[in-house]
Amino acid sequence: MPHGLELVPDAILAGRASDGDTAAFEALARRYGPQMRACARRITGSYADADDVVQESLMQAWKQLDTLRDNGAVKGWLLRITGSRSIDHLRRRKVHPELDAEHEAAADGARNHNNPESAAVNGSRVAALKAALARLPEEQRRCWVLKEFGDQSYEEIASALNISSDSVRGRLARARVTLAREMEEWR
């Protein structure tokens, strides 16, 4: 099925979407949905959780379109919502400990180096990075994913994680140093 709105630039789609044009909004969702999903999955640990997050994020985005000041910046805005929704999702899980154990197990499985997906690309540098990322402390990993996958500023990451910008700066640096060292050892 052709989706002709694929050709329309972000700023025009965002402007039309905030006028209530649902097709324009859906075209944006299709355009950035895969990156939103990838980002949410790296934070939550599973595609099932990621899909919930993407849906909530898009719902929030649709309701708050009028708060988007720069229509051309819609990609970063969607990823920012996705990042903070992913973190919210993890927090909600903490409220339901019985669900938590189950999810953590699933998330660990997804992060584990012996899952079939990473086995397929085993031996590649990306696979090594993925494994090194999985070994990082939780907070460092979140900072790294929000930065590199979500392209967020320190302030944006700070507000999603409810920590200070300085903490983000420190954790991100520690994450990068650990990852860079591991990648050098791998080579």
Binding site: R30, Q35, A38, R41, L129, E148, F149
Partner: peptide, 21 residues
């Protein structure tokens, strides 16, 4: 180098996440 590798990783993850269609 890590940044470049991270971008490559993201590219693979987006591809693995599927398409908007």
């Amino acid at each position: 180098n890590l940044k470049v590798l991270g971008t490559e990783f993201l590219g693979e993850e987006i591809a693995a996440a599927g398409k908007g269609t």
